[in-house]
């Protein structure tokens, strides 16, 4: 090829590549504009019997908080606030959302009963899970930190617990004393994620991982301790009456991408039962009431919220289409 030919080829192909990049980006930007707008209403956290969630519907309200009636989940009310991960209880909400776009950072934003901001804390990484204790006092969030590891396992989680009454922030639960039986565990590869709170505003459950194994662990905020309870359990969720824990568990022979099925453990007896959902999933369940759990099943850039009975009977049913991150608002009695 002569120099002129090479320059011609370079110019033509570069023009094509630039064209492809520009056209594709502009089209995607156009789609995004079409998904914006829509009417927003004011939502309140003081209305028991409703489910708040992150809407993933493409036609307006994408990533906005929305609410439906738990008993009749029909038409959704969409709020102006956008969240990537959300949870709420008893007048306190937590919303994980982008902070500074230029740095790709995120914040945990605390919300009052009318979804107004009342504080924010920087996240260490990408938002993953969030929970508020039943009284609304304790708030936990987990983010996913990239590149904080050794030997090539390029992932780590960072979980924080905030006491909204005293302002105490435990920025990293890996600093809690961790016990397995009589053994005290110190390792740089410990990860903690997926907190769920008991009603006493002290006890919580969470996932602890180290050395390639995961455990369900029981923690105490007051003493800053974590103690493993049972192996192979992730993203626990404590029932409103505090007697059972729902979690996802790796099952042999399942889809390698999402090797988990939902199980419920009765804490008093230690009996574990598989729920009726046979599709593999990857979510922290939420209790709809004392008998049913809700969870999201992923789809292509959207997800749906399903429900199934907590005793393993019945069949899963679709509760809210195009929704993620459900938070069931309860009354003072916890129902």
């Amino acid at each position: 090829m002569t120099r002129a030919t090479r320059l011609t080829v370079l110019t033509v192909v570069t023009a094509l590549l630039v064209g492809l990049a520009v056209v594709y980006t502009l089209r995607a930007a156009g789609d995004a504009d079409a998904g914006r707008g829509g009417d927003h209403t004011t939502l309140s956290l003081d209305r028991p019997g409703r489910i708040l969630f992150r809407s993933t519907a493409a036609d307006g309200g994408r990533d906005h908080l929305a609410a439906v009636d738990a008993a009749r989940p029909g038409e959704r009310a969409v709020a102006g606030r956008r969240c990537l991960v959300f949870h709420a209880a008893h007048g306190t909400g937590v919303c994980l959302q982008p902070a500074r776009l230029a740095l790709g950072t995120y914040d945990a934003v605390l919300l009052d009963a009318n979804l107004r901001e009342k504080g924010r804390h920087p996240l260490a990484g990408t938002p993953s899970r969030a929970r508020v204790s039943p009284s609304g006092r304790l708030v936990a969030w987990t983010s996913f930190v990239n590149g904080e590891s050794y030997a090539g396992l390029n992932f780590a989680t960072r979980t924080a617990i905030l006491d909204t009454r005293t302002g105490r922030l435990d920025d990293n639960l890996e600093s809690y004393a961790l016990h397995r039986g009589d053994e005290s565990i110190h390792s740089p590869d410990v990860n903690v994620w997926g907190v769920t709170f008991a009603a006493d505003d002290n006890t919580f459950f969470a996932t602890v991982a180290t050395g390639g194994h995961t455990w369900l662990a029981r923690g105490e905020v007051a003493t800053r301790t974590l103690r493993t309870v049972r192996e192979n359990a992730e993203c626990p969720s404590l029932s409103p009456d505090g007697t059972r824990v729902a979690y996802k568990k790796r099952v042999p022979g399942a889809d390698a991408d999402r090797p988990w099925h939902l199980f419920v453990l009765v804490l008093a007896t230690g009996t574990e039962s598989a729920l009726a959902e046979t599709r593999t999933l990857d979510d922290q369940a939420e209790w709809l009431d004392t008998d049913r759990v809700v969870y999201s099943l992923p789809g292509d850039l959207r997800a749906d919220i399903w429900t199934t009975r907590a005793d393993g009977t019945g069949h899963p049913t679709l509760l809210i289409p195009h929704a993620l991150s459900p938070a069931v608002l309860r009354g003072p009695s916890g129902t």
Binding site: L84, G104, G125, T126, P127, S128, F144, N146, G152, L153, N154, F155, A156, T157, N191, W193, A209, T214, E234, C235, D257, R258, D282, D283, S296, P298, L301, A303, L324
Partner: peptide, 26 residues
């Protein structure tokens, strides 16, 4: 820069699943 966000928030994968991606490649 966008892969972790894409996997966790876009596809809804858990961090643990993502961690498994990396191990074998070295």
């Amino acid at each position: 820069a966008v892969l972790p966000v894409y996997l966790v928030l876009g596809l809804g994968l858990s961090p643990m699943a993502f961690g498994m991606l990396d191990g074998l490649n070295n």
